[in-house]
Amino acid sequence: MNEIRVFAPATVANVACGFDIFGFAVDQPGDEVWLKLVDQPGVRIIDIIGDQGRLPREAARNTAGIAIQVFLQKIGRTDVGFEMILTKHMPLGSGLGSSAASAVAGVFAANELLGRPLTTLELLPFAMEGERVACGSAHADNVGPSLLGGFVVVRSYSPLDVIRIDTPASLFATIVHPDVEVNTKDARYILKNEVSLKNAITQMGNVAGLIAGLTKPDYDLIGRSMVDVIIEPVRSILIPEFNEVKQAALDNGALGCSISGSGPSMFALSRDLETAQAVGSAMQQAFLSVGITGEVYVSGINTVGPRVIECIMNDV
């Protein structure tokens, strides 16, 4: 095959208490990459659909483009190239790992077209380079789950150590993306560089509790552990009606509710689909009460990660 279409899923990063170390993938939304293998070296972006002209068309400045470029360099295939069309199915600056999904879809598609010279896990550093281009930091809490699927823990960056953990089959996520925008760089800029020992101890307890609750599984423990005393109090001021939306989720049965990534999207976890749907309606209504519209997504934990939509073999 010399053409392929790949979908990579959106992700919820941080997951309340796990700033920069937790993330999980969802079924929808996500980004899609069409890639064609060509003889001319390099990566050429033919078009980007759904970005309102905001994303760079130069491969070295594009999350998907740079991920493919460093992948080709690593495997020593600078003799070939790709033509690419990127389709954005989620808003920029949504807090849903938009840049990560693009990078994952791109490098996963390139690896497929070249006969899988690397394992899926080995693609992670290249997808992380896409994140560096997007926000200045090569973090893995979005690209990890988008690439590997499931709930991911980033234990260490030096050396890179990413672990996927099992989650309850009946656990559902609700995501509400309000029609406001929060820039990732701005959301990082307002964070404090130091935290108190008291808050650090509380946060570590919640991190350990959330992992234990997911693996046991213990839904009450999951809910008790979804408390962020370090990041959420600062970033929540960037999201209109944050407290009201969070309370609406909890009042309708959510185990917990917090900010997805850097926001403005908010997510909640529930113990079944019916509750997750009710939580989504309540959160959406809380935003609508002050005139803020938005999209609602309800999903189980996506354990697949990127998937091939179509493969095409053309005469060359």
Rank of each mutant, 00 (worst) to 15 (best):
N62W: 15
N62A: 03
T63S: 15
A64E: 06
A64S: 15
A67N: 07
A67I: 12
A67L: 10
Q69S: 11
V70K: 14
V70M: 09
F71M: 06
L72G: 03
L72Q: 02
Q73G: 12
K74E: 15
K74A: 15
I75P: 07
R77M: 14
R77L: 15
R77W: 02
T78S: 11
T78Q: 15
T78G: 13
D79T: 04
V80N: 08
G81Y: 04
G81W: 05
G81P: 04
F82P: 09
E83Q: 14
M84A: 14
M84S: 06
I85T: 15
I85R: 15
L86H: 05
L86G: 00
T87I: 15
T87V: 14
K88L: 14
K88G: 00
H89W: 13
H89V: 03
M90P: 09
P91M: 05
L92Q: 09
L92W: 00
G93D: 09
G95Y: 11
L96D: 02
G97C: 13
G97A: 11
G97W: 05
S98Q: 01
S98F: 03
S98L: 05
S99M: 06
S99W: 12
A101Q: 05
S102R: 02
V104M: 12
V104H: 05
A105V: 08
A105S: 13
A105N: 08
G106F: 11
V107S: 01
F108W: 09
A110R: 04
A110G: 06
E112R: 09
G115C: 04
P117T: 04
L118K: 01
T120C: 07
T120D: 13
L121G: 08
E122H: 03
E122N: 06
E122W: 11
F126I: 12
F126A: 00
M128K: 01
E129D: 07
G130V: 06
V133P: 01
A134R: 04
A134S: 14
G136D: 08
S137H: 12
A138F: 06
D141V: 01
N142L: 00
N142E: 11
V143Y: 01
G144L: 10
S146E: 09
S146N: 07
L148E: 02
G149H: 08
V152Y: 02
V153S: 02
V153Y: 08
Y157F: 15
Y157Q: 05
S158Q: 13
P159Q: 10
L160S: 01
D161L: 14
D161K: 15
V162A: 06
V162N: 00
I163K: 13
I165M: 01
I165N: 00
I165C: 00
D166I: 05
D166S: 14
